[in-house]
């Protein structure tokens, strides 16, 4: 056991931090959101610097990919980094052409899907369809952009597009779900961390009744409770991302089903609490596009409802731990 970053991990985080300082940040996210655009320049920069390939590189793995994904989420990057750095390598053992969107077939929707993050800009689609996963190359006309306030460019996909392509073997569906859950957890941890930081800064500086509102215990305890949830989510996500072949409970697919679901269940539940408290404590200012909070908070809602939402993540935990097949 060792919870400290090693020298290589520190170097990776420094390097990706520098890149994000130049290419990402809340102002950039707000500018792109106004036009519902994707940050192709940021994706290219991350790709060129090798950050999207660390999961499969010799000296690094999925934990480093998770650390990078968290950093990009913290910086409000409008890129499908989790799919590129974590999910695609985890599912296929290789890097796929980006941008990459991830979707699940919903039998109750025969014509088109619910809004899917990045689907309008994606070249590659990873589809979860029961026991199978599919890799689909998207074509013009597959996606129909959807207006959304939830922090990511979104589009609905035609059912035909989602059914194109060959099924990966039985079990690939569960494998995709595992990596997808881990990705949701890691992205939520990054966004929650930034939302909490910006709110802490706000309540330190905002004065009412002659004092900083952050000095009121009623405010402090709510942010402290959020910190407990975010820290728990963060370490659960790192532990889930740490795929060591000798580790108990980790299959040859790298990530442990129970750990990924646990990280996602805790993080998506925390996301709801963090959204509510950060917006409550930043008052009307926090709702404006002038303040940065919405860059992260609105994304938390999108992450909360993905893959059956919080309740689905929790059921996945229970089934992984106590389900009949175990």
């Amino acid at each position: 056991m060792n919870f400290e970053l090693d020298d290589d991990q520190i170097a990776i985080l420094d390097a990706v931090g520098g890149l994000l300082d130049r290419h990402a940040g809340a102002a950039r996210a707000i500018e792109l959101a106004a036009k519902a655009e994707y940050d192709h320049a940021l994706e290219a920069a991350l790709c060129d610097a090798g950050f999207l390939g660390v999961a499969l590189a010799d000296e690094t793995g999925s934990l480093e990919a998770a650390l990078i994904t968290e950093s990009v989420a913290r910086a409000g990057g409008v890129v499908a980094v989790a799919a590129a750095a974590l999910i695609a390598p985890g599912l296929t053992g290789k890097n796929l052409p980006g941008p990459i969107a991830v979707a699940r077939v919903d039998p109750s929707r025969p014509n088109r899907s619910a809004p899917i993050r990045f689907a309008g800009h994606a070249r590659t689609l990873l589809v979860l369809d029961g026991e199978h996963a599919r890799i689909v190359t998207l074509e013009t006309g597959d996606a129909e952009p959807t207006a959304s306030n939830y922090g990511y460019p979104m589009a609905r996909l035609s059912r035909a597009a989602m059914e194109r392509g060959d099924d990966l073997p039985v079990g690939s569906g569960a494998r995709l779900a595992r990596w997808w859950r881990l990705a949701i957890a890691v992205e939520a941890v990054g966004a929650m961390g930034a939302a909490l930081d910006t709110t802490v800064e706000f309540v330190k500086n905002r004065r009412q009744f002659g004092r900083a509102i952050g000095s009121f215990q009623a405010v402090q305890h709510r942010l402290a409770e959020c910190a407990v949830l975010v820290e728990g989510s963060r370490w659960l996500a790192y532990e889930a991302a740490y795929a060591d072949s000798e580790q108990a409970g980790v299959g040859k697919d790298g990530v442990c089903e129970e750990r990924a679901a646990t990280a996602a269940a805790h993080a998506t539940a925390a996301a709801g609490r963090v959204f509510a408290e950060t917006h409550q404590l930043t008052g009307a200012m926090g709702f404006t596009r002038e303040h940065d909070l919405h860059v992260w908070s609105m994304r938390l809602q999108a992450l909360r409802v993905e893959l059956d939402g919080v309740s689905g993540q929790r059921r996945a935990v229970a089934l992984a731990r106590w389900g009949r097949s175990h």
Binding site: A265, A269, R314, R315, V317, A318, R321
Partner: peptide, 12 residues
């Protein structure tokens, strides 16, 4: 769902 929620709390 409730079992999963409690398990996540223990793990955190």
């Amino acid at each position: 769902e409730k079992l999963g929620e409690a398990r996540a709390a223990c793990e955190a």
